[in-house]
Amino acid sequence: MEDNSLMIMNLIIHAGDAKSSAMEAIYAAKKKDFDLANEKIKEANAKINQAHNTQTNLLTEEANGNHTELSLLMIHAQDHLMTALTFLDMAKELIDVYSAMETLKAERGTDGE
Score class of each variant (00 low, 15 high):
Asn4Ala: 09
Ser5Trp: 00
Leu6Ile: 15
Ile12Val: 13
Ile13Val: 12
His14Gly: 01
Asp17Tyr: 06
Ala18Phe: 01
Lys19Val: 04
Ser21Tyr: 13
Met23Pro: 00
Ala25Lys: 01
Ala25Met: 03
Tyr27Gln: 03
Lys30Gln: 07
Phe34Ser: 03
Asp35Met: 09
Asn38Pro: 10
Lys40Cys: 09
Lys40His: 15
Ala44His: 05
Ala46Pro: 01
Ala46Thr: 09
Gln50Pro: 03
Ala51Asp: 13
Ala51Ile: 05
Leu58Cys: 04
Leu58Lys: 13
Ala63Arg: 02
Asn64Arg: 14
Gly65Gln: 04
Gly65Leu: 04
His67Ser: 12
His67Asn: 06
Ser71Arg: 09
Ser71Trp: 03
Leu73His: 05
Ile75Ala: 15
Ala77Trp: 00
Ala77Thr: 07
Gln78Glu: 15
Asp79Ile: 10
Leu81Arg: 10
Leu81Gln: 09
Ala84Lys: 07
Thr86Leu: 13
Thr86Ser: 14
Asp89Gln: 12
Asp89Gly: 13
Asp89Met: 07
Lys92Ile: 07
Lys92Glu: 10
Leu94Ser: 08
Leu94Trp: 07
Ile95Val: 11
Asp96Ile: 03
Met101Tyr: 07
Met101Asp: 00
Met101Val: 15
Leu104Asp: 10
Leu104Trp: 05
Leu104Ser: 13
Gly109Pro: 02
Thr110Phe: 07
Glu113Asp: 13
Glu113Asn: 11
